[in-house]
Amino acid sequence: MLWKKKLWSTLVVCLGVSLWNIYKLVNTGPSTSSHHFEEQPMMEGKSCNCNRCTELSNLDWFCERFDTSVNCLLTLENSEIPSGVLQWWLKLQRSNDGSQLQEIIKDLFDILPSPATGVEDIVQCGTCAVVGNSGRLRGSKYGEKIDSHNFVLRMNTAQTAGFEEDVGARTTHHFMYPESAMNLGPDIHLVLVPFKPLDLKWLASAFSSGEIWRTYRRVKPFLKADKSKVLILNPVFLKYIQDKWTMHYGRYPSTGFITLIFAIHTCTQVSAFGFGADHNGNWHHYWEENRAAGAFRRTGVHDAIIELQLIERLAAAGKVSFYK
């Protein structure tokens, strides 16, 4: 009988969390204010545990994957990368400078301020729109809805000029890596997704000497962005997504899916836009001509189908509002 009581109590915990999230989705719409960013700082804590499950349960698909202990951000205080994570990380793009990692991180934070770690684990941040780059956004007229969220997260070379009606105009957090980097306006957080140690060296260089202009291809030697607002994802967080969410389908998760999981960890309500193929079944960016639709699906790096299925399952579980 004891095991039955324990099983029942665990089920009630996760069921209660799920019902509470459904209640919030039904009874609270996205804020129409665009002035909450400084009032409610996002992800200044050392870890990310906003939102979801208080106990793990084999009966709950989401709770089984969501890890409240994972460190989302890389800081000086958590710069020691576990050996298993480091070995996996170095293999992603065939890096060989793992022995220099601590020196690289120290040099980086000599140039950039390390995110605060003395505050609460997480500051509740409200509603977040994660805007993917799919061509299915064309003609969607989602721009106003996207901009109504407290935070708007975009990634890589996402364009807004000329597409505001469909994709919105606001950006608060822009996720990128050296090969997809672009200059940012004021008050936008640059969020580096480091797929190799060289990405950390590039970031330091882009805000100082400009000496790194090539990785596996040409990259921007200098970057225009507010260096006081830079955030860096922890390789531990990337491996967590690969292990717990994409389950090793693809070599590593896409920037878009990484951004979505980050939002789930740090936002009280998440809306996803611009993921998946367009209505003709083509995979391409909304700002580009459809010359090689779906070419990225043939690279073998990311598994777009699996990631889309995960987003749809997150939506079915009430963790994400997925706008198709």
Rank of each mutant, 00 (worst) to 15 (best):
E103C: 09
P186Y: 06
A161H: 11
S208E: 03
D187H: 14
H149N: 15
L101H: 02
Q124V: 10
F109V: 06
G139T: 11
D147L: 09
H149R: 06
N183A: 12
L190G: 04
D226G: 04
E103G: 14
F195V: 04
E144A: 12
G185K: 06
T117V: 10
A225E: 01
M155E: 07
A181P: 09
M176A: 13
E179L: 06
Q100G: 05
H173E: 03
G132C: 00
T215Y: 10
R218N: 13
S95T: 04
I146E: 02
H174A: 01
G118A: 08
P113A: 02
I122Q: 08
P113T: 00
G143M: 09
E103H: 12
F163H: 07
F207W: 04
I122P: 00
W213Y: 13
D97I: 11
I146W: 06
K106S: 13
Q100T: 15
C125W: 06
R94F: 08
G118K: 09
H174G: 03
V219F: 08
I105K: 07
F109S: 00
S99D: 13
I146K: 12
G139W: 03
V130L: 00
R94V: 07
S134R: 04
L184V: 09
M176F: 14
S208H: 09
G126I: 13
E120A: 14
T172N: 13
D121G: 13
I212K: 04
S99Q: 11
W202V: 05
L137Q: 10
S205E: 05
F195A: 08
A161R: 12
I104A: 01
G162S: 05
I188H: 00
D199Q: 08
E211W: 06
D110S: 14
I188S: 02
F163A: 12
E103K: 14
G132F: 01
V167L: 07
C128M: 07
Q159C: 04
S205V: 02
D199E: 08
D121W: 11
V193Y: 05
T157Y: 05
K106F: 07
F175N: 03
S134G: 15
D226W: 03
D97M: 06
K106Y: 03
D226A: 01
S114D: 02
G139V: 12
H149L: 08
I111A: 02
N183W: 04
G210Y: 04
N96Q: 10
E120N: 10
E211A: 07
I212Y: 02
L200Q: 00
R136W: 05
G185F: 00
L108M: 05
F151D: 01
S140M: 05
L108P: 01
S208L: 03
H149S: 08
